[in-house]
């Protein structure tokens, strides 16, 4: 039997999702409860009095449950700022060591020389296989093993050119930078190797065919393409490193957590100082994530037919679509 046909097309009725509405409602309530408790007040146990229309009114003093007053007070404290600077410095230095050494280890690992690739494998095995906390304590205590370091001919004590005491080399700061840097190199080596392997073999052949040396091919052809694969996990590593530096509290490095703990010990504001530290870590990770977006965008050139819009461009096009009428459709 033929279908009934009408002169106009039938209208489309979208499928309803009642469960989604229920889930959204529950989630909204939970979030509201969380925000409410975040900004709730509790009695401090003290009584305050103030004048109100000629009368003295007394009542229990109410303070923020999460100590926002104290958080705000210590957020810009000079010691906290020093701690942030130290955290950033150690993160940057450790990542620089990690990236350079890691790339070197990745290239060694891919060498056709078995000895070189085995050494690279052993390095990764050791530094990935032991906790970074243990490695940090190790570098801090290296003076127990070696009182001093000398420059001269290996395996002899003759012709020593220079000698430096271990404690002069391995200050707390340097122990932290070296410890975190060497550990990071092991992880970054694997990331870099994955990136280098992701580039099509034909690229190296094409580079060779126009007469490029292995170094030139790596620098101008292979590494720029590998970056697209290397950057997202590297962004993870940078953010992870930023937070991992907090375990350097164990060797007394005056970084962010060390400073906030110190203030907490002095003022008994334990929770507010933890919030201060968290807010700073969050702020820096946010800046890093934004930076990562733009770096990724830079290395996406040629791999994507059109680059993803920046947040500013996206906002502009959204606004244009809302207010611009027909012009916006043809953007």
């Amino acid at each position: 039997m033929p279908e009934v046909t009408s002169s106009t097309d039938p209208i489309v009725v979208p499928l309803r999702h009642p469960l989604r509405w229920v889930a959204s409602g529950v989630a909204t309530v939970v979030v509201a409860m969380f925000v409410h408790t975040l900004f709730s007040k509790i009695p401090s146990g003290q009584t305050v009095c103030h004048g109100l229309a000629g009368h003295r009114v007394c009542g229990p003093e109410m303070v923020w449950r999460f100590g926002w007053t104290e958080v705000l007070h210590y957020l810009g404290d000079p010691l906290v700022i020093q701690g942030v600077e130290m955290t950033l410095f150690v993160t940057v230095m450790a990542m620089v060591i990690g990236f350079v050494l890691g790339l070197l280890i990745a290239i060694m690992r891919m060498s056709s020389n078995r000895l070189l690739s085995s050494i690279a494998w052993l390095y990764t095995w050791f530094f990935r296989g032991t906790p970074v906390y243990v490695q940090l304590l190790f570098w801090f205590n290296i003076a127990v093993l070696y009182q001093s370091f000398s420059l001269g001919i290996p395996f002899t004590h003759a012709f020593t050119i220079a000698t430096v005491g271990s404690n002069a080399i391995f200050t707390v700061l340097r122990a932290a930078v070296i410890g975190f840097g060497l550990n990071e190199a092991a992880y970054f080596a694997e990331i870099a190797r994955g990136g280098l392997l992701s580039v099509d073999e034909g690229q190296l052949e094409a580079a060779k065919a126009i007469g490029m040396t292995r170094m030139q091919s790596l620098r101008h052809i292979i590494v720029p393409q590998a970056m697209r694969v290397i950057i997202p996990p590297s962004g993870n590593e940078v953010i992870s490193m930023l937070k991992t530096t907090s375990i350097a509290v164990a060797i007394g490095l005056p970084e962010l957590l060390y400073q906030t703990e110190n203030i907490a010990a002095r003022t008994y504001q334990v929770v507010p100082m933890l919030i201060v530290a968290s807010l700073w870590y969050l702020a820096v990770t946010t800046v890093l994530s934004i930076g990562q977006f733009y770096v990724e965008r830079h290395f996406a050139k040629g791999a994507l037919r059109t680059l993803p819009p920046t947040p500013v461009q996206r906002l502009r096009s959204d606004l244009a679509r809302s207010f611009g009428g027909r012009r916006a459709v043809a953007r």
């Binding site: 099509d200 034909g202 690229q203 052949e205 094409a206 580079a207 060779k208 065919a209 126009i210 007469g211 490029m212 040396t213 292995r214 052809i221 720029p224 393409q225 290395f299 050139k301 040629g302 791999a303």
Partner: peptide, 26 residues
Amino acid sequence: SERELCDDRAAIGMVFQRFNLFPHLT
């Protein structure tokens, strides 16, 4: 040596089945 091979290759052009253009360059 690799250096000498590179000099030889620079004087011989090659075109591949799969083009092998450098995708990150214009």
